[in-house]
């Protein structure tokens, strides 16, 4: 048994990044080879029963069942997130809901999701950009634990303006996972990028590596934090809290495996974009209504 465990481990290590399908097949193939090798030796030495048993053990190791989440099989889902920036009204209920649902550090410096405001004034070339963590907006809301955009452009000649919600992009090729030295952050089979808080050493390399600024260091727990798509909700058939509370349906969540899901319709019926495609991170957070200046 120890021997097989060892083989399993080496098979994994050789694959390096085991998040994509190829690596899985490769690993399975490798284990089959090992299984065959073991089997042929076994055939020489022992009876056919022993051979069968060895084969079964090798196959069992190659196909672990899904994680023990009641009523949920991650093999059945491929989650995706959509943001229709043309609908966003900048009410920030999503930000408040996220903080409450996930007990996020209640300051203006720690967010799992946030909203940006882009405003071009007439005659100006570059937009004014701010988020609710801007000190003036914090002052307008009255505290760091409430969220509001102030009305600073009232009476000014505005050429163009819109809001853009931001959230972890749960990339297909997440650079945060790539750089994590321990394997404390990982991409699940159903598409979420999660952090194992009990395993994270708090080096913050992932915070550096994320091109989107989606990660932060939790000063209370001394480990890194980020959006989980409310993994405790989606595994119970609910939507993430930000999606649940959005009053204008600017945030969409669902199963990309299901053609009839909101997210599948969102992606197929619109021409969607992702943020910073040049990074090669391949986000699974899709946007409608971005602008050349949004990054």
């Amino acid at each position: 048994m120890t021997c097989e465990k060892d083989i399993d481990r080496r098979g994994q290590t050789a694959q390096g990044d085991e998040d994509d399908g190829d690596a899985r097949t490769g690993r399975r193939g490798f284990l089959k080879d090992v299984g065959k090798a073991v089997a042929s030796i076994g055939a020489l030495a022992a009876s056919g029963t022993a051979l069968l048993a060895t084969k079964q053990t090798a196959q069992a190791a190659a196909e672990p069942g899904p994680p023990a989440i009641a009523g949920y099989d991650w093999n059945e889902h491929q989650w995706g997130y959509g943001i229709d920036a043309t609908r966003c009204i900048g009410c920030l209920r999503c930000v408040e809901a996220c903080k409450a649902e996930n007990d996020v550090v209640p300051t203006a410096h720690h967010f799992r999701t946030w909203v940006e405001r882009y405003v071009w004034l007439e005659g100006e070339e570059r937009p004014h950009v701010d988020s609710h963590s801007d000190p003036d907006n914090v002052a307008a809301s009255g505290s760091e634990k409430e969220y509001r955009f102030d009305n600073r452009y009232q009476g000014k000649k505005v050429y163009k303006a819109f809001f853009v919600p931001k959230i972890c992009n749960h990339c297909r090729h997440p650079s945060c996972v790539q750089v994590c030295p321990t394997g404390a952050t990982f991409k699940t089979k159903d598409g979420a990028v999660l952090i194992d808080h009990s395993y994270c050493i708090g080096c913050q390399y992932c915070v550096q590596a994320c091109p989107y600024g989606a990660r932060f260091f939790d000063p209370r727990t001394q480990v890194t934090e980020k959006c989980t798509w409310c993994y405790h909700r989606i595994t119970k058939g609910l939507k993430p809290a930000c999606v649940e509370v959005c009053p204008v349906n600017a945030r969409i969540f669902g199963d990309l495996n299901n053609e009839a899901s909101d997210i599948s319709k969102f992606v197929t019926e619109n021409r969607v974009q992702v943020l910073k495609p040049e990074t090669g991170n391949a986000p699974t957070c899709f946007y409608v209504g971005l602008d050349k200046e949004v990054s």
């Binding site: 203006a108 410096h109 720690h110 967010f111 946030w114 940006e116 950009v129 701010d130 988020s131 609710h132 963590s133 931001k166 915070v207 989107y212 600024g213 989606a214 990660r215 932060f216 260091f217």
Partner: peptide
């Protein structure tokens, strides 16, 4: 403008 989380 900086991302909110970047302020640390």
């Amino acid at each position: 403008y900086v991302y909110p989380n970047e302020t640390i």
